[in-house]
Design a protein around this nucleic acid. Structure first.
Length: 815
RNA sequence: GCGGAUGUGGUGGAAUGGUAGACACGCUGGUUUUAGGAGCCAGUGCCGCAAGGCAUGGAGGUUCAAGUCCUCUCAUCCGCACCA
């Protein structure tokens, strides 16, 4: 008998699938469509490891299963090729980014191919291809036209290692998301996308998405929508007013001081001569602090008095105005009314600087000096006795009538900074003219291609290396023909990935980013599979762009990803993240080389645990999955060898059909609910059953065995595409198992004529009885009472109640 | 601090309120001259000779019956974090 040898089988079928293009998707069919997508990868220098592979294995199992279930499946793949890793890799290896990307995509594609993933490679895209970024630039212009792209000079996060600015989303705990270098602030004129215009919809529409609660809450948290009021406080002896944002206008009578952020423009105006020295020292020190340092102060409150007083518009009292860095200039209005009795931070500040604390909320549940809970108002003049909720509205209404207050909604999210001072990105299609100012590059001149340069290393001067390519930079103004210069910054790579899922519907279109009917046919993405790392970056940006295209009338949906599936991370066997620095990465290549094959890896990726929970890779477990495939291989090969035998009989017929129908039912239902690990367990059980049947009856019932084996192979096909294709062919099928129709089960094979009933006394298991399936309750309970151990426990007791759960158990309640 | 998740054998994990531990790893024993990362069969939660008892992070509760529902609590992981 031929041994199971994945090294021989797998490449052979991979080639055949490619040659016959069996995974290519077309619009010409009556079948319902299904778009299954995994995040398109960043082709970095390091090869993919088994953690990455899990992502694609889940998507591929879903795509294959959908295909066999009659769906017209789009399952594409491409490359998120622009960005820092490729550029850094190129600099390090002294090659061009173009060469680096070619090298790395080839490597990644080989890795994906050897895993047998069913991608439609005819739709392969690459975001660094001018044919692709042509349309990224076109979308930049669309955003500009719609008032959603603008330039602003401001202090921005700057990574001195990567020599570029970063968006807020790309700074994690004060460090660069790419390299971990602490970021600093740098004043530069930069391009932004106005994601804040979409903050409300981005927050609200989360409710209609089938996404994990974890990601939704991360996005909600990031958007940071909060309802409140803006209130103007007049400054005593000045024309100035201080505008504050508060979510608790009901506590305004308790506002006993105010605090300005150190960066607030009023700080200098309001500071008195006596206080000038203190304030200046404080502000300078605060500005010198990095974000990390501000967080390291352990929340010990610091601040200084400006010398000025504001007037509380609620009660006319004069309250001191302070400067403190616990108030953030970037949020709200950069100034607050401090209510020390009902806000923890204000409370700490007041205690430290001996400022008055006036309680204005009574709360019976928390009847203490300090509470942040809502309650009933006190010390609040005409509003005394109102509850917080009503008081909020009434107080703001009163202030609004005087023109010093209004209800507003505030967001934490900031506009998306997209300029990058690096070479390897899509050039921003803008020309700066001395006369006409900012002029977009006309459509007919797109794409603005990246010029060849000698060195890719960033200058760190706040411009990309493109600034030094003079014959590229210096152009004629498209409007006036006068001297002008190109924008030399490139776009954030996340711009490219904000629309790639649309391009897959029409990847080779050179007249438009996509044909609207094709996008209408395929989109939105039905299942988007990936990790949580993009929660507040890619997934937020892509949602925004989709809404922009929707508003522009290009598409008829406003959410790109109906269902988001976040797979759990695969950790190294030592429980740590796989990384080069730990030296604990495991690649599929080495496992395939060892002879286990891609199919066993795929089974392992899914069987290791629930797909959405993290798991440690296990070398031993890998062996178990290989063994499972070997058992199916052996079973089928033995069958084929014995099939010439003419001693055909019915022996084992019923058992065979019961085993395979039970498996079909469980596997079908489990895959539908993404229970891949239990689906594989059901297949293992079925194989164990078949071995037992074989041991008893041999392969006597040849026809039934053939049906059973074929069905088993179909059920396994989404998980292990190569071995199933090989055995499917060996059983005499001409066309691919992956184009076959998913098997159905028949309940009639699952009924037995005998059932086992558990017998409990007072909820404790005391025995079991075997009865005919159609036995009535009285028969069952009589038999149950007669069970020796049951009788023993019922002795000397009064039977109070008998519970019979049909077909399952009997519970005698006795005292 | 806020938000999200997760706690079950030696290990990964199964269990529409109805026999806790499916399936697999590991381990133990058997078997086949067996060299193959072997295969096949059986056993394997803990205590106990047994009867039986104890077991799903902990404590209560609801129920004939709780891993599952409710209340409180502890631990771990992830995200955000002085957001007014």
């Amino acid at each position: 008998m031929q041994r199971y040898n994945p090294k021989d089988i797998e490449p052979r079928w991979q080639k055949k699938w490619a040659d016959h293009k069996i995974y290519e998707a077309t619009e010409n069919t009556d079948k319902p469509k299904k778009y299954v997508l995994e995040y398109f990868p960043y082709p970095s220098g390091a090869a993919m490891h088994v953690g990455h592979v899990r992502n694609y294995t889940i998507g591929d199992a879903m795509a294959r299963h959908a295909r066999m279930n009659g769906f017209n499946v789009l399952h594409p793949m491409g490359w998120d090729a622009f960005g820092l890793p490729a550029e850094n890799y190129a600099i390090k290896n002294n090659i061009s980014p173009q060469e680096a990307i070619a090298e790395n995509t080839a490597k990644f594609k080989r890795q994906l191919t050897q895993m047998g993933f069913s991608y439609d490679w005819s739709r392969e895209i690459n975001s660094s291809d001018p044919a692709y970024y042509h349309w990224t630039q076109w979308f930049f212009k669309l955003l500009l036209e719609r008032g959603l792209a603008y330039q602003k000079e401001s202090l921005q996060w700057w990574c001195d290692f990567d020599k570029t600015v970063l968006a807020n989303e790309q700074v994690e705990a004060g460090k660069c998301w790419r390299c971990g270098n602490p970021v600093t602030k740098k004043a530069l004129k930069q391009w932004f996308f106005k994601i804040t215009d979409y903050a409300d919809r981005l927050a609200d529409d989360l409710d209609k998405l089938d996404w994990s609660e974890a990601i939704k809450s991360m996005q909600r948290n990031w958007i940071g929508k909060s309802q409140g009021a803006e209130i103007d406080f007049a400054v005593d002896g000045h024309d100035e007013t201080i505008k504050v944002f508060t979510t608790r206008p009901d506590t305004i009578f308790g506002a006993t001081f105010m605090v300005l952020a150190p960066e607030h423009p009023l700080v200098h105006k309001l500071t008195t001569d006596e206080q000038k020295q203190h304030v200046t020292t404080y502000v300078v020190a605060a500005e010198a602090k990095t974000d990390v340092e501000r967080q390291e102060t352990d929340r010990e409150k610091t601040g200084v008095f400006t010398g000025s007083y504001a007037v509380n518009p609620a009660n006319g009292e004069k309250i001191p105005v302070w400067v403190a860095d616990y108030v953030l200039y970037g949020y709200g209005t950069g100034a607050i009314m401090a209510v020390p009795a009902h806000d923890e931070r204000d409370h700490a500040f007041a205690e430290k600087f001996n400022l008055p604390i006036v309680r204005v909320i009574k709360n019976e549940a928390a009847d203490e000096e300090f509470t942040h809970e809502p309650g009933t108002l006190m010390n609040s003049g005409e509003f005394d006795g109102q509850d917080s909720q009503a008081a909020r509205e009434n107080i703001v209404k009163t202030l609004a009538e005087r023109g010093v207050g209004a209800m507003v909604t505030n967001y934490k999210i900031r506009d998306w900074l997209i300029s990058r001072q690096r070479y390897w990105g899509a050039p921003i299609p803008i020309i700066h003219c001395e006369k006409d100012g900012v002029v977009p590059v006309p459509d007919e001149d797109l794409p603005v291609k990246l010029p060849k340069v000698k060195s890719y290393a960033p200058t760190g001067e706040g411009t990309s290396v493109l600034a030094s390519v003079e014959d590229w930079v210096n152009v004629k103004c498209p409007k006036c023909g006068g001297p002008a210069k190109r924008e030399t910054d490139t776009m954030d790579g996340f711009a490219c990935s904000s629309w790639y899922f649309l391009r897959f519907a029409d990847p080779h279109n050179d007249k438009a980013p996509f044909a609207e009917d094709k996008v209408k046919f395929w989109l939105p993405v039905d299942d988007y599979i990936g990790g949580t790392e993009h929660a507040v970056m890619h997934l937020l940006y892509a949602r925004m762009w989709t809404k922009v295209f929707h508003d522009a009338g290009m598409i008829d949906f406003d959410e790109p990803f109906k269902a988001l599936r976040n797979q759990g991370m695969i950790l190294a066997p030592d429980g740590r993240k796989m990384s080069k620095s730990w030296g604990n990465t495991i690649t599929p290549d080495e496992i395939i080389e060892q002879g286990y094959g891609a199919d066993a890896i795929r089974v392992m990726e899914l069987f290791i645990g629930p797909w959405d929970q993290q798991a440690n890779w296990s070398v031993e477990g890998m062996g178990g999955c290989y063994r499972f495939l070997t058992r199916i291989w052996t079973l089928t090969q033995e069958y084929l060898e014995y099939s010439d035998d003419d001693k055909s009989s019915e022996a084992g017929h019923d058992e065979l059909l019961r085993a395979i129908n039970a498996a079909t039912k469980r596997v079908s239902q489990d895959i539908d609910s993404m229970g891949f690990n239990t689906a594989i367990a059901a297949l293992m059980e079925c194989v164990n059953d078949l071995y037992k049947i074989k041991a008893t009856h041999g392969y006597a019932d040849r026809d039934t065995w053939r049906t059973v084996l074929q069905t088993l192979i179909q059920l396994l096909a989404p998980f292990a595409p190569h071995i199933t294709e090989e055995l499917w062919a060996a059983l005499g099928n001409d066309s691919s198992v992956h184009l076959s129709t998913w098997p159905k089960w028949d309940e009639k094979y699952l009924v037995t004529n005998e059932m086992t009933i558990a017998v409990q006394v007072n909820g404790k298991l005391r025995g079991e009885v075997k009865v005919a399936t159609d036995a009535d309750e009285a028969t069952v309970t009589d038999l149950a009472k007669a069970v020796e151990k049951v009788a023993a426990h019922l002795e000397d007791k009064e039977l109070v109640k008998t519970i019979y759960v049909s077909g399952k158990l009997v519970n005698f309640v006795a005292k």
